[in-house]
Nucleic acid binder design. Structure first.
Lengths: 341, 341
DNA sequence: TTGAAAGCGCTACCAG
DNA sequence: CTGGTAGCGCTTTCAA
C-alpha cells in the first residue's frame, strides 16, 4: 500500500529535483522560469497528476477566485442571467457559487457572510423587492454588484435594465396600432422595476395625449393567476379596453386565459403585450408580443464589473441596458366591432 | 488609520485574553469549553464581528464543505433539481458551486479538476448523453453522484427516475381511453432515458396485445421544432394515429402546433401526452397531459447521497424515483369520425 | 479545561 | 534564474 495522497508542490519538487518555489512559479509566473526547467516541471506535473491545492492558495493570497450569486428564488428568468454570469466568470477565471435565499433574511445574511469568511470574493445580487438587511449592511460591505433589479436608495454598482423605456415602447406600439383604450396590469408596488414599467406606461399615454384612466390600471403579483384575476376586473369596466399591457409575461398569459374563458379572442378582440420575453412567450399559442430583456448580457456585465471591483481595477460604474420590443401574435390593430355583421 | 483587516482568531484571542485554541474550540467543539469562557468568547466574537477564515479551515481539514453541480446546460428542467440539491446542501452544511459545461468535454474536465484542487469535495453530475472522459475518468474518481440521467455502463451512485415505468403508464392511459393506434415521438438515441421511455411505450403496447408499428415511431431531439417535424411525418402515414406519446413536453407542444397548422384539433382529433411536466405543460393551452418527474426530490436525494459519500458514511446505493401521470387537457377518448355528420 | 505549538500547501520575499 | 524560508489562519495533538 502506497500513500494515495494527492501530490503536493513539495512532493513534486522532490520528485523533479527542484524547489517548491519553482513549482509555484511555473504555475503562476511562468515567465520567471527558465524555459527548459519550465518544460520539465510542466511534464512532471502532467505525469504525476499534480493539482495545486486551491485552499492553500486562497489562504495565502487572501482571495478565493470565487464569487457568489445570490438570488431570492430561481425562476427561468434568473437562469439566463446566471448563464451570463457564468460566461464572464469563466473568462475572468472565477468560479460561481450559487445560493438561493428563498427571500429569507436570515439565509441572506448567512450567505453574505461567506465573503467575510473568505469563501467568496464578491457577490452578485439578483433580487427583487427584498431590501438587504438595512443600514448595517452598507457598512462592512463586501464587493457587491446588483443585477437586473435596483435596490431602494442604494449606491451599489448595478447592471440595470431600462424598464420604463421598454414599457413606453410597448405602449407606443399599441397606440401606433390605433388603440386608444389601453389598460395596464402592473406588478407589485414593492418591486421597483414594476413601478418603472408603470411609469413608462403612463409616459407613453401622456406623450400621445391620451388620458390615463386609473380604473384601467390593475395590480397583480407577477403570477399567472393574478393576471387572470386582474383581467377579469378589467372586463367588469364599463368600457372594456381594446389592449392590455402587462408587467410580465406570466400575467399576460393569465390575462389571455381570462379573455378566452369569457369567449373573447386574442388578438382579434383584445391585444395583449407582455414583458420579459421568457421562453414561454415564444412558445405560447398565440405567441406573445412582449418586451425582451437582455438577461444574459445583464449577468455578463455584472460579473465583469464585479471582477473589476474585486481586482480593484477601474472605478466602478452602473450601467443600464436597453430592452427590445418583440412583436409576435398578440397585438394587432383594434377591430371595429360595429363593422361586423 | 487603523488596520481595516478582518479579525482573525489570533486577534480575537488577544482581545479576550484566551488562546486561539479556545476560539477554535468554541466554534467547532463547544462542549469541550467551560461554559463561562464559552459565553464570553461568543460575545466577543459577536461584538468584534469575527468570521473564521474558511480557506484556512479548508486547508487544515482537507475538506471544503462545498460541492459542485455540473450540468451540460441549464434549462428550467434542471433548475428544479438544483433547488433540491440546494435544500439538502443547506441542511448538511454544504455550499453549492455551479458549473455549466455547455456540453464541452474540456470544460467538463476542468471542472472535474476542482475536486482534485480542493475547491470542492464532490460532484453532482446532472447530465444527459455526454459520457465523461472515458475510462481514465473512472480511475481517480472523486465522489460523484449522478442525478436524473444514467451514464452508460457506469457504477456510479445515482438518483434515477423510472422513465420506462412512466412511459408505460402514459401509454396505458391512452389505451384505457380507447386508443389503438398510438404513435411515439422519441428522443435521441444517445440519451439513455429516451431509450427507456421508448421501451416503456413498447411494453405498454405489448401488454395490451397491440401491434408495435415501427412507422409510428419518429425520432426527435427534444426540441419544439423536432416535435413539429416528427408530427408532420406521422401525418403522412396511411392511417393517422389517434394519439401520440411524446418523449418530452417540448416535443409534445411542437406536435400540437403541427396538428393545429393542418387544421386538426387537440385533443378532439388527436390526443397528446408529453413527458417531464415542465411548467410549460401546466400553462399551455390546452394544458398538457404529461408524466411528472420528481425533480426536486432527485436533486435532494442526490445531495444527501453525496454528503454521505464525502463523509464516508454508509455504503452508497443508487435509488430510482417513481414518476406520476398528470392527466390534463390533451388526452381524451378517440372520437369516432364516422359518427360525425 | 486551557495553552503552546506543529503543521496543512502554497506564494512571495530575499539571497545567492 | 533558482532555492530557502516565513508565514497566511486555522485545527488538533500533547502537556500542563
Amino acid at each position: 500500500m502506497k500513500k494515495p495522497d494527492s501530490p503536493t508542490s513539495k512532493s513534486i519538487a522532490a520528485a523533479l529535483g527542484v524547489s517548491v518555489a519553482t513549482i509555484s512559479r511555473v504555475l503562476t509566473r511562468p515567465d520567471l522560469v527558465n524555459e527548459r526547467t519550465r518544460e520539465r516541471v510542466l511534464r512532471g506535473i502532467e505525469r504525476l497528476g499534480y493539482r495545486p491545492n486551491l485552499a492553500a492558495r486562497d489562504l495565502r493570497r487572501g482571495q478565493t477566485g470565487t464569487i457568489l450569486v445570490l438570488a431570492p428564488l430561481l425562476g427561468s428568468f434568473w437562469l439566463e442571467i446566471l448563464y451570463g454570469v457564468e460566461k464572464a466568470a469563466d473568462e475572468r477565471g472565477f468560479s460561481v457559487l450559487l445560493a438561493n435565499t428563498r427571500a429569507d433574511q436570515n439565509r441572506e445574511k448567512a450567505y453574505l457572510d461567506l465573503v467575510a469568511s473568505h469563501r467568496a470574493d464578491g457577490i452578485i445580487l439578483i433580487t427583487a423587492a427584498l431590501p438587504v438587511g438595512g443600514k448595517s449592511f452598507a457598512l462592512s460591505l463586501p464587493p457587491v454588484v446588483l443585477a437586473a433589479e435596483p435596490l431602494p436608495s442604494s449606491e451599489l454598482p448595478a447592471v440595470l435594465v431600462d424598464h420604463a423605456g421598454g414599457a413606453e415602447e410597448a405602449v407606443r406600439h399599441l397606440i401606433n396600432l390605433g388603440h386608444r383604450r389601453i389598460a395596464h396590469i402592473a406588478g407589485p408596488d414593492s418591486v421597483i422595476s414594476a413601478g418603472a414599467r408603470m411609469s413608462g406606461y403612463r409616459k407613453a399615454l401622456r406623450a400621445a395625449r391620451l388620458p390615463v384612466d386609473e380604473s384601467l390600471i390593475q395590480r397583480g403579483f407577477f403570477s399567472l393567476e393574478s393576471g387572470t384575476i386582474a383581467m377579469h376586473a378589467l372586463l367588469r369596466q364599463r368600457r372594456v379596453p381594446t389592449a392590455v399591457f402587462c408587467a410580465n409575461d406570466l400575467m399576460a398569459i393569465g390575462a389571455i386565459q381570462a379573455l378566452k374563458s369569457v369567449g373573447l379572442r386574442v388578438p382579434t378582440d383584445v391585444s395583449i403585450v407582455g414583458f420579459d420575453d421568457e421562453m414561454l412567450a415564444q412558445i405560447y399559442d398565440p405567441p406573445l408580443t412582449t418586451v425582451h430583456i437582455p438577461r444574459f448580457d445583464t449577468g455578463y456585465q455584472a460579473m465583469m464589473i464585479l471582477a473589476d471591483l474585486v481586482a480593484q481595477k477601474r472605478p466602478v460604474r452602473s450601467i443600464t441596458l436597453p430592452t427590445r420590443l418583440v412583436v409576435r401574435g398578440t397585438s394587432v390593430a383594434p377591430q371595429n366591432r360595429r363593422a361586423a355583421p
